[in-house]
Computed example of a mutant assay.
Amino acid sequence: MHGRGLRHRLRGRLPMPLTHVAPVAHHESPAVRRRRRRVVAGVSVAGAGLLGASLSTRPGSKEFYGATLTVAGVWTAGGLLSGPLHLGWIQGRDRRLRRPVVTPIATGVGAFGFFYACALAARAIPPLDRAISRVLVFAEEGDEPLVLLTTLANGLGEEVFFRGALYAALGEERPVLTSTAVYTLATATTRNPALVLAAAVMGTLFGYQRRASHGLQAPALTHLTWSALMVRYLPPLFRRAHEETR
């Protein structure tokens, strides 16, 4: 009986599908919505420009770390100044609402596995191989703790802004599609097709997580988990591949 009860509780804690929207509502006044949209419009342009400039600096330089941390600060400050943000909830199969922790972390691990498999294939496609290598050089030639710090700071800042402020500013105007499109366009300033593709894929996932949970905790944890694994395990993969072809 004890074992059956434990299994029942564990099954109950399993999350509902990503398409299931938790029954939570956050209502905003027209004044808050107008303010949020003004802030979002300005920060979107400024952040996108700074993002493109950050990858034009020399890998491992003080300019690179300063620029990337500035971008993270702009995204984070813009999100926080736009208005109230919410962490969100995830609903289990037992219909109870809980803060999303385990599921988004597991999703981040799964997303990394998917991208790692794609990276294995991308090494055989010269344009993608070059594009990914241009990004990974910032991790290869940089100080590992600082690279991880800037990666996580930008991941968090992007979620605070794109899945926090921007998503809320859109209201009912197809927020998943529109927030992903803006996120992808901002990433396009880097002129790196690998980053743009990653932004489109992950931005869609983050958008659906935001839609399902009504908050930014789920996409933020997924983004941080995915980013940490990518910056740790992708550079050695491409380094070994290039060494083998010499």
Rank of each mutant, 00 (worst) to 15 (best):
N192E: 05
L205K: 07
R191N: 13
P175Q: 10
A188H: 03
V196G: 00
T204D: 12
G171W: 05
P175G: 01
A200V: 04
S179D: 07
E173M: 11
A169V: 05
T187V: 14
L185F: 03
A199R: 07
P175E: 05
T184L: 11
A188P: 09
L195N: 11
N192W: 01
A181M: 04
E172V: 02
P175R: 09
A199H: 10
Y183M: 11
A169C: 02
S179G: 08
V176F: 07
L170P: 08
T189K: 02
R174Y: 10
N192P: 00
G171E: 13
A169F: 02
L205P: 02
A168Q: 13
E172N: 11
T178W: 03
V201N: 00
N192Q: 02
T204I: 12
V201I: 14
V201G: 01
P175T: 09
L177C: 00
E173L: 11
P175D: 12
Y183C: 07
V196K: 04
A181Y: 00
P193N: 09
V176M: 08
R174C: 06
Y183N: 09
A168W: 01
A168S: 11
T178A: 14
S179C: 10
V182D: 10
A199S: 10
L177R: 09
E173S: 14
T189N: 07
T187N: 15
R174H: 10
E172A: 15
E173C: 07
T190E: 10
A200T: 12
S179K: 06
S179L: 12
T187E: 14
L185W: 05
L185I: 14
R191T: 13
V196T: 04
R191E: 04
P193W: 06
L185V: 07
A199W: 00
A168F: 07
T178D: 00
R174N: 11
L185E: 07
E172T: 08
A188D: 00
T178G: 08
P175L: 05
V176R: 01
Y183F: 15
V182I: 15
E173F: 14
A169R: 02
T184G: 01
L170S: 09
G203S: 09
A199G: 05
V182M: 10
A181Q: 00
T187M: 15
M202D: 13
M202N: 12
T204Q: 13
S179A: 15
V201T: 07
V201L: 13
V182K: 10
V176Y: 00
T180R: 08
R174T: 09
A186K: 06
A169Q: 05
V196W: 03
G203M: 08
Y183K: 03
L205A: 13
G171M: 14
G171L: 12
P193D: 12
L177P: 01
V196F: 09
N192R: 09
T190W: 01
N192K: 03
A200P: 01
Y183T: 06
E173A: 14
L197N: 03
A194D: 15
M202A: 15
A181G: 10
A181F: 06
L170M: 06
A200I: 04
T190M: 11
T190A: 15
S179E: 06
R191L: 15
V201R: 04
P193I: 03
L195I: 10
T184K: 02
T178M: 13
L170E: 04
A198G: 09
T180Q: 08
T189V: 13
A200M: 09
A188T: 06
T184E: 02
V196L: 09
L177M: 05
R191G: 02
S179N: 13
G171V: 04
G171F: 05
